[in-house]
Computed example of a mutant assay.
Amino acid sequence: MNTRILLVLWMLLLTGCVSGLPPEVVAPGTWRQVDHAILAASQDATEQASHFARDAMQEWREQVYQRTEAEFIPWFSSYRARQWLSVKLSWYRLGAADEEQVVDRLAFYLQQQYRKRVLVPVARETDPVRIRERTTRFYLWLMGELLARIPARHGVPAEQFERRLEAIPAITLAPPPNRNASLGQLIRTERLDRLPAYRALAAHVHKAPAAAVLWSEDAGISSVATQASRQLTAELATSGVASAVSAMIGPAGAVLSLGVMGVTALVREGDRAEREARLRESLGAAFDAQWRAWLSSRDNGVMAGVHYLDDTLQRQLMLRQDAPRQTP
């Protein structure tokens, strides 16, 4: 019995001694190497995230092109649609101060149609806003994978490394305090959407150009719609259809007769291929310009969240380079 008691006391003594050991001291030079490794990890993750975003954006662009080709262009150049556009044009003329106002109103209608027939349906599957969100999450996931290798590589105790990550600000959108988050918080949080600071970051970068469905209001597509509107207005002016439609509209704005849909064709069917080619070229040029803007904009593009996090880490860790190093 005495031997057993002595053994228990000895084990308790050993446990007390082990738990009372001072933490391992990490040299300041080692912490500088760790900081450089974190910076390198962020640069690597940013580069990989850019490839991820470009691939996703390419897929989105192809879907927009396909739907533009299948839905919008055939609709715009169809006989029935252009008859209806002639009705719209004549209606706009009733209350317009000048011809330029008529062109603008028809252009806005074309923008709405492009949004309805192309951008909204594609956005049900993917769009730049979702791609931006997925890209930011991909960056944070990859950062977690890369950072996990650093402690063993530099001989730093895992607990001290974790505390160091908790001390590195990654989102600094204060006030209020809960709009801030450390690097450690971001890579350890499973539900980022529940983290107030992450939601604040999403709101911070969610500025125009933002939702793809709003591209119909962008200067690019607006100019295309205006150009198409001018062409259509000119065609109507020389075709005699506009005056025929106007004659069917009473001064009090009576209901349009369904017979309007049977008026003479605005443009010969032989001109359809040429019209479609012009519209396809104009839409393609405007869309490509906006697509490149979404990829390149550091403030609002699909890489905006990643650039914000990388820039913040670069700034925070570079500030530490000249500061005295202490064990966390």
Rank of each mutant, 00 (worst) to 15 (best):
R164M: 11
V224L: 10
R124D: 15
T68W: 02
T264F: 12
S257Q: 02
Y79P: 00
A219Y: 06
I171E: 08
T233K: 15
S223A: 15
H36L: 15
A27D: 09
A148H: 01
D104E: 11
M11F: 07
R54M: 01
Q160H: 05
R93M: 14
A27S: 13
S229C: 07
P74E: 08
P169N: 13
Q316H: 15
A237H: 13
R105E: 06
L186V: 09
L12S: 15
P324A: 04
R191A: 12
G240T: 07
E125M: 13
V213Y: 13
Q321K: 15
L6K: 07
L313F: 09
F161P: 07
R230D: 10
K207Q: 11
D299Y: 09
S216H: 15
H154E: 03
T226I: 05
E125C: 06
E69I: 00
R292C: 02
R67E: 11
D193Y: 14
S42P: 03
A286H: 00
G259E: 08
R105G: 15
P251M: 15
A277K: 12
R230M: 13
G220W: 03
A41Q: 05
W215D: 07
R188D: 10
S243N: 05
R272C: 03
E99M: 14
L317E: 00
D98A: 09
L173Q: 07
N300F: 06
R275F: 12
F161Q: 00
Q112C: 08
R230C: 08
F52W: 09
P209I: 04
F287G: 01
G301Q: 02
T136Y: 04
V263P: 03
I249E: 15
A152C: 01
D322E: 10
R149Q: 09
S246E: 14
F287W: 14
R61E: 06
T233C: 08
P177H: 08
G250E: 08
A97D: 14
F108D: 11
A45F: 06
R80S: 14
V224K: 00
R67Y: 07
Q227E: 12
L147H: 02
W10T: 08
A212S: 11
E24L: 15
L140D: 12
Q33P: 03
E217L: 10
V87Q: 05
M11S: 14
W215N: 05
Q101W: 10
T172I: 03
P175W: 13
M318S: 11
R268Q: 12
P121L: 09
L232H: 14
Q101S: 15
L313W: 02
P28M: 07
Q111L: 03
P328T: 03
M11R: 14
H51S: 05
S239Y: 05
D310M: 00
A45M: 09
P324W: 05
A41L: 12
A148G: 01
R278N: 11
A289I: 13
S216M: 04
Y308M: 09
W294E: 14
A27C: 01
V25K: 05
I38R: 03
G29N: 05
M261H: 09
R298S: 07
N178G: 06
W84P: 01
R153K: 12
W10S: 05
Q160T: 02
P169I: 02
H204S: 06
L258M: 08
L317S: 01
R149S: 06
V213Q: 14
M1R: 01
D35G: 02
G29V: 04
E269Y: 14
S19L: 11
